[in-house]
């Protein structure tokens, strides 16, 4: 039985590798287009970095006493970039295709395959060019870490433990985003067509781009609560970025509670998205024929 499950797992892994390979072949067929896509997404990164550099000409940190000074904030940006590029590379093209499959009835074929439908739907395409932003995030992170380690005031280097935790929670963040995306695209089964998916996605993730502290005041509080506990997009970037950018030892119990909640939120949202997906599939009624 145990052996069975393991061979099952390697099978899925193999299928995934085949998907990734096929996508790479497809991307490489139109190589110039691929390069142009990489360049334009790097352009977007550069513009954002420019914007934040301009901001930090005028201020020393984002929010009074929040501790997000320039280097730490750039670590935050790098984290956003990691997570977004992973989501865009692995899930975005699939979510778009899913809506299309439902509309055209192509989902029938996916349902017939002897493989978990959610797996098949979520991993079919890999957009390799989106990973160029992952590299960009890596460079930003390295520069920020270097200047964080060598600066005069409060130099710091993250410990091995915090780096490991960081990687783990980046994965959690990707999982939360993935769940959200599956839920959103599953709604197109009910709506027939969900073209606003991309817009909606953009608006929601917009909130995850900045440190969560900035929402925690005045009329931002309801939003702060909503995006932490109901749709946990604020946790996605904030938890890993906090682990890396703020030293781990003098931590308040609030921080620890947040980490625990982050873990719980990941599991919960994965579970809920699975449930929503299955519910949605049950009301799927093909197209034509």
């Amino acid at each position: 039985m145990e052996l069975d499950r393991r061979s099952e797992r390697t099978k899925y892994w193999k299928v995934f590798l085949t998907f990734a390979h096929n996508s790479l072949v497809r991307d490489m067929t139109f190589r110039t287009n691929f390069v142009l896509q990489c360049i334009s997404s790097l352009g977007w990164t550069l513009m954002n970095v420019g914007f934040y550099l301009i901001i930090f000409q005028y201020t020393t940190s984002i929010g009074a006493d929040s501790g997000w000074d320039r280097d730490k904030f750039f670590l935050f940006i790098a984290t956003t970039w990691f997570i977004n590029s992973l989501v865009q590379a692995f899930f975005m093209p699939n979510a778009e295709e899913f809506s299309e499959l439902i509309r055209t009835g192509g989902l029938d074929f996916a349902l017939l395959k002897p493989i978990d439908t959610q797996f098949l739907i979520s991993f079919r395409r890999v957009d390799w060019s989106a990973l160029s932003n992952f590299a960009a995030g890596f460079i930003i992170a390295l520069v920020a870490l270097y200047s964080l380690a060598t600066r005069q005031i409060e130099p710091m280097t993250p410990s091995i433990l915090s780096i490991l935790l960081y990687v783990f929670f980046v994965a959690c963040g990707v999982a939360i985003m993935y769940s959200l995306m599956i839920c959103l695209s599953a709604t197109s089964i009910w709506l027939g067509r969900n073209q606003t998916l991309y817009n909606f996605w953009f608006y929601i993730t917009n909130f995850s781009r900045y440190p969560m502290e900035i929402y925690n005041r005045g009329w931002g509080r309801p939003m702060y609560g909503f995006f932490t506990f109901i749709i946990p997009v604020l946790l996605v970037v904030n938890i890993p970025a906090r682990i890396l950018a703020k030293p781990i030892s003098p931590q308040t119990w609030e921080d620890q509670l947040l980490i625990v909640w982050g873990l719980a939120a990941t599991l919960l949202s994965l579970w809920i998205s699975r449930w929503v997906f299955k519910c949605a599939l049950r009301s799927y009624r093909s197209a034509s024929s």
Binding site: T59, T60, I62, G63, A64, D65, Y210, P211, E213, Y215
Partner: peptide
């Protein structure tokens, strides 16, 4: 708006 508020907040406090 929240981002800018945070920025002004920190300029103000320094």
């Amino acid at each position: 708006i929240f981002l800018w508020y945070a920025i002004f907040d920190s300029i103000e406090s320094t």
